[in-house]
């Protein structure tokens, strides 16, 4: 049963994997430009004027934050746009629906490419981060936190791809939800420095918890298990909504 699920997931993702293989260089450049700009502007531009944060150098503090926001930006946009294009503009999503593949495998198959892209991007960012500072620890917990975040934001991408009926909707969602998340969820400064009202608002967003997990594991702090559970719960919620829409023919 589990083997069959993985097999079906691979079958769904094959089309996107072929695309990834053909365009790996341009995809990586697209994924990495923004986080690398953050590295330069926050670590060297702003970072030189900022004292230690939470007991570590600002560079060591901000690198896991940029990795966390990269899990969101690199996974979400590409998946949401791809699913929307396949559903509305190419109608090739119908071909997938018409195949004898379970809805779960369709959802995870579409999200899998986001996970791969996100992991590749984060791996490069971490390697660059290791060159920039010696305060980072690579551990299994860090890899697991990054993988979970990538999967959750890929699932969010699938969901937004299902819910949107035009590119405008995806752009609006990116501007209204994703862009504020990347800055406010503790990626480049602590959440506690925000006004109280905003602190409550960002506590409802998954990136806050992803950042906590990735930063804690990268800096060797005590690991916030509860935050990891919250990230996973967001993932389950995104998956269940996708599953409902797909199995009821509501996409």
């Amino acid at each position: 049963m589990i083997l069959s699920f993985f097999d079906e997931t691979f079958r769904v993702s094959l089309q996107d994997l072929y695309y990834l293989k053909r365009n790996i260089l341009s995809i990586l450049v697209t994924i990495l430009v923004t986080p690398l700009l953050y590295y330069v502007s926050f670590c060297y531009g702003l970072g030189s004027n900022v004292n230690d944060m939470e007991g570590v150098s600002y560079i060591a503090f901000v690198i896991p934050g940029v990795v966390a926001l990269s899990t969101l930006t690199s996974c979400f946009s590409s998946i949401a746009n791809k699913v929307l294009a396949q559903r509305i503009y190419y109608t090739s999503f119908d071909e997938i629906i018409l195949c004898p593949i379970s809805p779960s495998a369709v959802i995870f198959g579409k999200a899998l490419v986001g996970l791969i892209k996100g992991m590749l991007g984060c791996a490069i960012l971490l390697i660059i981060g290791l060159i920039m500072t010696d305060g980072l620890h690579i551990s299994l917990l860090l890899i697991a936190s990054i993988a979970l975040s990538c999967m959750v934001y890929s699932l969010l991408g699938v969901l937004v791809g299902f819910l949107s009926n035009s590119l405008t909707t995806v752009i609006m969602f990116t501007s209204v939800i994703i862009a504020p998340m990347t800055f406010l969820c503790g990626t480049v400064f602590t959440v506690s420095s925000l006004p109280v009202g905003l602190q409550y608002a960002v506590s409802a967003l998954p990136l806050t918890y992803s950042t906590e997990c990735i930063r804690a594991s990268a800096l060797g702090w005590s690991f916030p298990v509860l935050s990891l559970v919250v990230v996973a719960v967001f993932g389950v919620a995104f998956f269940l909504i996708c599953y409902y829409m797909l199995s009821r023919g509501k996409i």
Binding site: R11, L14, Q15
Partner: peptide
């Protein structure tokens, strides 16, 4: 409804996989 960015061969193979 083909994936315009991959080859003819890859499209046909993908459909074979999708159709099990």
């Amino acid at each position: 409804s083909l994936d315009k960015d991959i080859s003819v061969k890859e499209n046909i193979i993908c459909h074979g996989y999708l159709q099990k």
